[in-house]
Design a protein around this nucleic acid. Structure first.
Length: 889
RNA sequence: GAGAGCAUAGCUCAGCUGGUUAGAGCGCUUGCUUGACAUGCAAGAGGUCGUUGGUUCAAGUCCAGCUGUUCUCACCA
């Protein structure tokens, strides 16, 4: 016989080894051959190569793995493709940080050396990340792992860019864009986070140019006055009508600028006079265009003021704000400073304040994408789960503006453009062309910018299958994918862009369902962050409690797109659950060993006539579980599925069925050497193993390691559970009726236990019990269960007579007399029964009232009425039992 | 400024299309060294489901307002 499995449940003992077994067996590797099986594919949201995985990744991948493992067991041909994203800006920030620690800048080491370091970084962290994913137990196909900058991906990016360019959807131009001085690059609108900040509103006097007097303006950014080209007031503002055609002088530099009239200006905000800085404000830019104003760019790429700032040239913009205010005060033109709460844009990567800045950038025209992207969700080709995120998506898509795709970063896909220095023509090409396609000149220069990281990420769900090669077997078999699992924080960056790019490039929606989850927060509900130091490393949790416990915790906590709180206590509870299953399995294993029972893998059988009432009960409960669980997973109700598994395994299987099994054994049910017992023994073991086997499979998607480990212990080290079939409901067995009957026995056991606890009857003291019931057959069959579970000396069945000196316990199905001899306190006894009587009468009157209400009888559905009637009669039955007991006092 | 989510036991949350006496885990109380498990077993205490109205035979459950809270979007300097 095999060696018993370890007494102690220690996941660190076997989780890694089990992952190795899976890898060796290639059970997660998909075949690209066409079969008649249905396919199910997920494109894993590729983690950033910036560092290590966090709880959010654990949640995201746990959910995906549950779906993938479930579908695999359901018989689908599944493929889950993993990979990492080069995450241009995030990684570049890290690399620059690393350089700074060495006292270097990226300019000092040069582009080539920088990219060398970046690729080295990628190699290192990609490995880290993939290993962490394995620790979590993900069943993705690592033979297909992808990277957003690998060769084939770069080809995809080029094809996408070229198509857009040829279709006239990409243009290059000088626009006001969001500029991050921290990262030294432009950003798209989505990459700017607006935060309410306490700022100052500076009221500044601008002297009139040719006469006495002044105009007062208000601004939050006094350092930008050097880029002012006008002061604007509302066309209808009576206060300012007299200044038509006049000019003012910008303080400090005394530059003469005109007063203009524009309807954009709000009379009631600030002073009603607005300084116009087209180089550094998108609205001012628009006003400037309308009035043909000059555009002044005041900052260099590092955020320092340039020569336009006169005496402030070379000063950092943040310092300049204070210094300029100080100077204005000295000049006596600073009227006042008011505190003002206003939205300020911040870089989503480095957190620096983002400035609007005029800059030459590449853009994608978004208008043509809107309609198809809206339609595909409106008509249900793509479903968001939960549905409310569709509204958020619609709102964003409807209002999306042209997408700035160029970045002044070094890490990323080069913009595939070569500028002809002779004729100015832009050549779109993956590599340096031999000459300009227009003038044939050879004086070409590569565009220095790289692409927004999300430009390539948008291609992920089809590029991973080989696109732009539309004949690639994976693409033909697995695209479009089925479910996309991701956080709500990434809907705009990624989900929307994948839909745009998918529809444009492949004419298909890239996925069918989008399962949105929330953030994993800390115990107090705060976002996990580096600065707060409240982040929890999933790997630490796995080391302590096992991946299964972490997965189960996350899966149990996830709920309809809402955030969840992580706490170690929850993981402990999940670990305890795993421990429970471990020990239950070990118990069954020990029984098998003891009686030398050999298991036939996948050939567990039992026949109808061999089943006892408790067997029918557990089979019925199992049937219900299989049915509901399957539906729950298909409906993405993952946490509901978790609680059902928890309840069944712990409270039904362990607390009851295994305990009943023990009693049967203790009663010599199958220890004697007779034919009858041999049959019982076979049947009982077949059944308990059958139920355990089903449990392991049902739990496998959630807790893959422990279920696999127990499977190995049961059947041998070559039996992979991941590729077994999902359990099916048992049909054609008479189990439902018997199961309901067995619940009566459970109720009586509960009542007796309750009685013992209330009366402080010691464990060792056995009570003598008399039962009066209409369900004699059931209770007789379960006599031994009552004896052992409720600590009875003996159980006697009576028909008519009353038992003197006993305590009476009434359930729906029986009156139980517990003989207490002289100990019984008649008064107390009577009091209890009266109390119960009173309670029942109250309940019954509520039901009667309801059932005598014609409105209810006529309007409520018949099955509800029937149910209520049944309830009433069961209450009445119980009451009559109590009344008859009371007669004896 | 616009929109969305949340509000149920001390804490963290379930409660699907309205239908018993509103559930779980943790915590708490009382017993248990019961041969799988003290990472456990058994029994319990604890909630007028944020507030005010409305719809309905029937409302944590649907609708509206209010309060509190979290978040998203938005070019008021």
């Amino acid at each position: 016989m095999k060696v018993l499995f370890e007494k102690k449940y220690d996941p660190s003992d076997f989780e890694d080894k089990i992952y190795e077994k899976w890898t060796e067996s290639n059970c997660f590797k998909a075949s690209n051959k066409k079969t008649d099986k249905k396919t199910y594919a997920i494109a894993m949201p590729p983690p950033n190569v910036t560092g290590k995985l966090h709880m959010g990744h654990s949640l995201d991948n746990t959910l995906q793995d549950i779906l993938i493992r479930f579908k695999r067991m359901m018989g689908f041909d599944v493929l889950w493709v993993p990979g990492v994203d080069h995450s241009a800006i995030a990684t570049e920030v890290k690399l620059v940080e690393q350089l700074r620690e060495e006292g270097l800048t990226k300019e000092e080491i040069g582009r080539e050396e920088f990219l060398k370091r970046a690729f080295a970084w990628k190699e290192k962290y990609e490995d880290n990340i993939l290993n962490q994913l394995k620790k979590l137990g993900v069943s993705c196909d690592f033979s297909r792992k992808r990277f957003t900058m690998d060769e084939q991906f770069s080809e995809a990016v080029f094809v996408f860019f070229k198509r857009l360019y040829d279709d006239g959807l990409i243009y290059r131009g000088k626009r006001i864009i969001n500029w991050c001085f921290g990262c030294g690059t432009s950003l798209s609108d989505a990459e700017v986070e607006h935060k309410e900040k306490d700022g100052n509103f500076y009221y500044i006097k601008y002297k009139l140019a040719d006469e006495d007097g002044y105009l007062e303006i208000a601004t939050t950014r006094p350092e930008t006055i050097f880029a002012d080209v006008a002061v604007a007031v509302n066309t209808d503002d009576e206060r300012y009508k007299k200044y038509a055609g006049k000019s003012v002088l910008v303080p400090i530099i005394n530059k003469k600028i005109p007063i203009i009239y524009d309807s954009y200006v709000e009379k009631d905000f600030g002073t009603g006079a607005l300084k116009i800085t087209p180089g550094h404000d998108p609205n001012d830019f628009e006003i400037g265009k309308r009035h043909n104003l000059e555009i002044i760019d005041l900052f260099d790429d590092k955020g320092k003021l340039n020569s336009f700032a006169g005496p402030f040239e070379g000063m950092d913009r943040k310092k300049a704000r204070k210094e300029v205010a100080k100077k204005l005060e000295e000049l006596g033109v600073l009227v006042k400073i008011e505190p003002l709460k206003h939205g300020v844009g911040h870089c989503y990567r480095c957190g620096e304040v983002v400035e609007p800045k005029l800059s030459m950038q590449w853009f994608v025209k978004m208008d043509v994408f809107k309609k198809p992207a809206l339609e595909v969700v409106q008509n249900g080709d793509i479903n968001f789960i939960p549905k409310r995120f569709e509204k958020i998506y619609f709102n964003w898509v409807e209002n999306v503006r042209d997408w700035c795709i160029s970045r002044q970063l070094w890490w990323g896909h080069f913009i595939p453009a070569y500028h002809c220095l002779d004729c100015g023509h832009i050549n779109i090409s993956r590599k340096m062309p031999s000459c300009c396609e227009k003038c044939r000149g050879s004086n070409l220069e590569q565009d220095g910018d790289t692409l927004d990281t999300w430009f390539s990420a948008a291609l992920w769900p089809f590029s991973i299958f080989g696109w732009p090669d539309e004949k690639s077997p994976d693409y033909l078999k697995f695209y479009p994918t089925d479910t996309l699992v991701t956080g709500y924080d990434i809907i705009f960056f990624w989900v929307a862009r994948m839909i745009f790019a998918g529809l444009y490039n492949t004419k298909k929606a890239p996925f069918k369902n989008v399962l949105i989850h929330g953030l994993v927060r800390d115990e107090q509900g705060r976002k996990m962050s580096k600065s707060l130091g409240n982040g929890v490393d999933p790997i630490d949790v796995i080391k302590l409690y096992g991946a299964d416990a972490l997965r189960f915790t996350l899966a149990s906590g996830v709920n309809a797109g809402n955030d969840m709180r992580y706490s170690e206590k929850k993981v402990v509870a999940s670990r305890n659950f795993a421990n429970k299953l471990w020990n239950a399995s070990r118990f069954i294993f020990m029984q098998l060993n003891e009686l030398d029972i050999k298991l036939n893998f996948n050939k567990i059988s039992f026949s109808d006539e061999d089943l006892f009432i408790e067997d029918r009960w557990i089979l019925y409960k199992l049937n219900v579980l299989i049915k509901e669980l399957t539906k729950n997973i298909e409906d993405y109700e993952i946490s509901v599925a978790c609680s059902k598994l928890y309840e069944f395994i712990w409270s039904v299987f362990c607390d009851w069925y295994i305990e009943l099994f023990k009693i049967k054994k203790a009663c010599g049910f199958y220890s004697k050497d007779s034919k009858e017992e041999e049959k019982n023994k076979k049947s009982a073991f077949s059944l308990i193993v059958y139920v355990l086997d089903s449990i392991l499979k049902l739990l496998h998607p959630f807790m893959p390691f422990i279920t696999q480990k127990i499977y190995f212990e049961l059947y041998g080290e070559d039996k992979i559970i991941s590729t077994q079939s999902w359990p099916k409901e048992i049909e054609n067995l008479d189990i439902e009726k018997k199961a309901k009957e067995f619940e009566k026995v459970i109720e009586v056991v509960g009542a007796l236990r309750n009685f013992r606890a209330a009366e402080n009857i010691a464990k060792k003291v056995k009570i003598t019990v008399y039962i009066k019931t209409n369900y004699f057959d059931i209770f007789k069959e379960c006599e031994q269960f009552l004896v052992h579970l409720a600590g009875c000396q003996e159980v006697n069945f009576i028909e008519e007579k009353e038992i003197e000196n006993s305590r009476k316990i009434v359930t729906d199905s029986a009156i139980i007399y517990v003989y207490l001899g002289d100990l019984v306190d008649e008064e107390k006894e009577k009091e209890k029964l009266l109390k119960e009587k009173e309670f029942l009468e109250k309940e019954i009157s509520i039901f009667e009232k309801k059932l005598s209400n014609d409105n209810f009888l006529n309007k409520a559905p018949q099955d509800v009425v029937l149910k209520e009637k049944e309830k009433l009669s069961s209450k009445q039955e119980k009451l009559s039992k109590i009344l008859s007991s009371l007669k004896n006092f």
